[in-house]
Design a protein around this nucleic acid. Sequence first.
DNA 1: CGCCAACTCTATAACGTTGTATATCCTGTG
DNA 2: CACAGGATATACAACGTTATAGAGTTGGCG
Lengths: 330, 330
Amino acid sequence: MNDVARAAGVSLKTVSNVLNDYEFIRPATKQKVLDAIAELGYEANLTARSLRSGKSRMLGLVLSDLSVPYYAELASRLMSIATGRGYRVLVEQSGAEAAHELSALQGPFRQLTDGLLFTPLALDAGTIAARQGTKPIVMLGEHITDPRFDLVTMKNSEAAAAITAHLLAGGRRRIAVLGAAAGDTTDSPGLRLNGYKQALEAAGVEFDPALVVQCDWRRDGGASAVVGLARSGVRFDAVFGLNDAIALGAMHELLIRGIKVPDDVAVAGFDDIDEARFASPSLTTVSPGMEEIAERSIKLLIDRIEGAEPAAGGVHVEAGFELKVRDSAP
Amino acid sequence: MNDVARAAGVSLKTVSNVLNDYEFIRPATKQKVLDAIAELGYEANLTARSLRSGKSRMLGLVLSDLSVPYYAELASRLMSIATGRGYRVLVEQSGAEAAHELSALQGPFRQLTDGLLFTPLALDAGTIAARQGTKPIVMLGEHITDPRFDLVTMKNSEAAAAITAHLLAGGRRRIAVLGAAAGDTTDSPGLRLNGYKQALEAAGVEFDPALVVQCDWRRDGGASAVVGLARSGVRFDAVFGLNDAIALGAMHELLIRGIKVPDDVAVAGFDDIDEARFASPSLTTVSPGMEEIAERSIKLLIDRIEGAEPAAGGVHVEAGFELKVRDSAP
DNA sequence: CGCCAACTCTATAACGTTGTATATCCTGTG
DNA sequence: CACAGGATATACAACGTTATAGAGTTGGCG
C-alpha cells in the first residue's frame, strides 16, 4: 500500500480511503490511486485488515461430518450464498463429539470467524450459553430449542406427520420407524417420531413401540435396522426412515431379502437428498426446505454480525417443507 | 499477551517465547508464564500471528462443487488429516468455471491460505503456470499432467481396464461407456476410456464408438444417457459409468424400464462412494484409493510449505486402486 | 581471579491496515 | 475581502504478534 501511495503521490491513508469508498475523495485523486493500484497489481492484505478491523469476513460452520450428503449439500449452498454476501465459510467437523463441539465454540476456530452456524449434537443449551462468547451464533437443527438463541429449523413434526399420513393414505397400517427410540421426544429423532405418532392418532391407528427401531442415521444403520426387524419377526408393511440415508439403507436391505418395494413394503425417507430421486425405486421423502434454511440462516447471522442492534432475544425461523411422492411409496 | 506478561512479571517477548517453545527458557519462568496464561484464559491472536509470520496454517481446497459425493468425501478426509497436522482447510467451489478457478488461484482466497489443493477442470497448465504465484500448489485429478507441477492422481486407465476386464470376464461383450466422447484421450474421461479400450483389445473385442455416450458426471447424466442409448436402438449388455453417480443414475433408468440388473445388463461405476455399497443392487465399482490420495496430497503440500527446499521439480503420486465386485456386475 | 561462552531475558521495531485527530484547501456568503 | 464551514487529504497511533539485536547472568577453565 505504501508503494501505491508513493506511485500515486498521495498518503497511505488516502489509498486506504479509496479502497474503503470514503466519501470525500476528489475523482481525480481516486483515479490516480486506482491507476497506481492497477499498475502495481496491488491487493489489500486481508490479514492486516482483519487484525485492524477485528473482522475476518468468515463464517464458521460446525457440523458433524461433511461426507454426510445432507450436510454436504447444505454446506455447498451455504457457501454459495455467503459468497454472494461477501463472506467465506470455514467448515469444522465435530464428529458429533462434545469435545470437538466445545473447541469449535471456544477455540481458535471461533477466533477466525465473525459468527457461527452451529449444528450442535452433543452439547446442551446451558453449556453453549455459558461459553458462547460475544460473537453471534445461529443454531441449525433441532438439538437446541432454547429461545435465547437464534434458531433456524425445519418443521420436523409437521413434515413427519405429513409423510406418515401419506403412507396411511396408501393403506399402510404397520409403519416401522427407523432412527429413533420409542421414548424420544426431542431433537430430530424425537420431533419426527412425534409427527409420526400424531399422524397415527389422527388416523385412529394404534402406536406400536415394537415398530420403532433405533439405529445410526446412516445407510448401514437403516440396513441393520431392517435386519433387526426381520429377526424379531415384527410384521410391517411400510418403513419410515427418519432420514434418507436410513431409508435408502433399509430399502437396500429389503430388496436384498426379496421383499418388494413398494408392493410388499413401502419406504419413505426425510431430507430429499439428491440421491433420493435416483434410487431404485426412487424414494418418497420430504424436502425440508434446505434452500430456505440456508438463505435465512446466512441472512440472520450476517445481520447479527453487521447489525448494530444488540441481540434482541432469539429469532426463530422455521422453514417450510414439501412432500415428494415417488415410487417407493406412491 | 501484555496482561500475561505483566501478570507473570516478564516481558512480552518472553511470553511469546514460551508459546513458541523457545529453547532457552528457565523452567521456573516458563511455569510462571503458563500459570498466568491459565489464570487469565489467554489465547494467542491468530490473525496477528498470521500477519507477523506470513503464514495462516490454512490450506486451500478448490473443487467444483461440494455437494458432489466424491468431493464431499474427499474434503471430509482432507480436513481430518489436515487437522491432525495442525492445519485447517478452507474450501472454495469453482463450479468448474475458468473465472472462478482463476480467482481461487490469484484472488483473496489464495492470500488466506499457505498452499493450495487444486482440482482444476477448466484452466490449462499454461495459464496456471503463468499465475501460480509463489505459494505451493498440489494438483488433484487428471486435468493437469504437466510434470512441472506436483500431482496426486489415481490409476485411471489401469482401474478402468480392470473393471472392464471384469465385465468381459462375466461374458459381457457390448459394454456401453457413459461419460466420455469417443475421441477423448485426456482428463478423467479420456484416461478411463483408454483403460476401457485397452481391456477390450486385450480380450480381442472390437471397440464400437456407438457404445460411447457423453453425459454429465451426475446421476441425471447417467439416466439420460441410458434414455439416449435406448432411443438409438444400440444393443448393450453392460454399462460402465465413468463415475458412480453416472452408473447409479443409469442403473436407476434401466430398472425403471424393466431392464434387469445384472441379468439383462450389468452395471459398473468408478469411485466407490459410500452410496455405491447401498444401492439396489449394490454397485460394482473401483475404489481409487481416496484415503491414500488424501494423505499423500496433504503431506506433499505441507512438506512444500514447511520445507526449506525449493520446489525440486514436480512430484507425481499415483494412488493404488481396488476392484469392488458387488451385485450389479458379479 | 578474570574472561570467554553459553544461557536467559528484554527493548524495539516491524508485519499492513484503519480510526482519530488535525491540517489544508476550497467555495460562497455577508 | 475576510471567513465560516464543508470538502479533501494527511500524520500518527494502534491492532497483537514475532524477529532482531543486544543486555545481563551464569558457570567453567586457565
